[in-house]
């Protein structure tokens, strides 16, 4: 199994744990990732506020690089996944758009390479049986709330799972021996940049997600988006200050949990780098085995 890999900007900075754990888990499971050389930013959520064509051309340049190698593309970051997949979708819908994209990037774009989220590689391509067979340290008794946020599951045209009740991450949790928590906020928006520009709004959006996970008895939250991670992990301290409370819940990338179950060291996965320290929980429930 070989894919072109698009990490995206966040994975080289604030989302470093996602990068480390994606690569380590893929390697361990025999999935070969060829990082697209000289990849560029996908334009995230703001290119399309400026220009429709630019919002397609930015991701498409990366797709062309993968196409030349004859590979499909795997993306870890939920936001980048959405942008890349959207470029393929729009180009396949209209020859005119496809040609315009090619003109904008100065190379022919054929829209042949498929775009997959990292989750799909494990659930649909490799298969969860293989994942389960490779587990050496099952996450027994670890109650995990899977958080999808927006861009993995919406809009339906680009979604990698059901828009209202996706199950992929829960299935991964079960394959690695953990216990999925049923809760209400798994596809609710974290507010994206509101926590920076309008903390009065953003913090409330984050808080109700965290609160529900805690209320349903989760030990931790697992997710697949560096933006959601920044909000749910980094803002907990401020939110506690604001509410004069003291309740914390560790937030991890699903690949970090997979890596732990596959026997990899927490440091190798970046688990020690989060704002809310996950180590005490993991030591108690996972690592003593």
């Amino acid at each position: 199994m070989r894919y072109a890999y698009y990490p995206g900007c966040s994975l080289e900075s604030t989302g470093i744990e996602y990068y480390l754990s994606s690569l380590a888990v893929a390697r361990k499971l025999g999935v070969e990732l060829w990082e697209i050389p000289e990849w560029n930013c996908c334009g995230a959520s703001f290119a399309h506020s400026s220009s429709y064509l630019l919002s397609l051309a930015l991701p498409a340049r990366n797709l062309v690089l993968a196409e030349k190698e004859g590979l499909d593309v795997v993306v870890s970051c939920a936001a980048c996944y959405s942008r890349l997949k959207n470029a393929v979708y729009e180009a396949r819908k209209s020859v005119e758009v496809k040609e315009k994209i090619g003109q904008a990037i100065g190379q022919e774009y054929r829209a042949q390479a498929e775009v997959y989220s990292m989750i799909e590689v494990f659930t649909n391509h490799l298969g969860l049986e293989k994942v389960a067979q490779a587990v050496v340290r099952p996450l027994e008794g670890l109650r995990v709330a899977s958080y999808y946020g927006c861009l993995l599951v919406r809009p339906p045209e680009l979604a990698m799972d059901d828009a209202e009740n996706p199950r992929s991450l829960e299935r991964i949790t079960m394959a690695i021996g953990g216990a999925p928590v049923e809760w209400n906020f798994k596809v609710e928006c974290c507010g994206a940049f509101h926590s920076t520009f309008r903390p009065d709004v953003g913090f409330q959006m984050i808080d109700r997600i965290l609160e529900d996970a805690l209320r349903e008895g989760a030990d931790c939250i697992a997710l697949a988006c560096p933006m959601c991670m920044m909000n749910l992990d980094m803002r907990q301290k401020d939110i506690n200050k604001m509410k004069k409370s003291n309740s914390y819940i560790p937030v991890l990338y699903f690949t970090e949990l997979m890596g732990l179950a596959l026997g990899l060291a927490p440091k190798e996965l970046g688990v020690n780098r989060h704002f809310v320290n996950a180590m005490p929980l993991l030591k108690k429930k996972v690592l003593q085995q």
Partner: peptide
């Protein structure tokens, strides 16, 4: 401006 582009409405 407060719309966070979550796409729940369109869905």
């Amino acid at each position: 401006w407060l719309c966070s582009d979550c796409i729940a409405c369109y869905t």
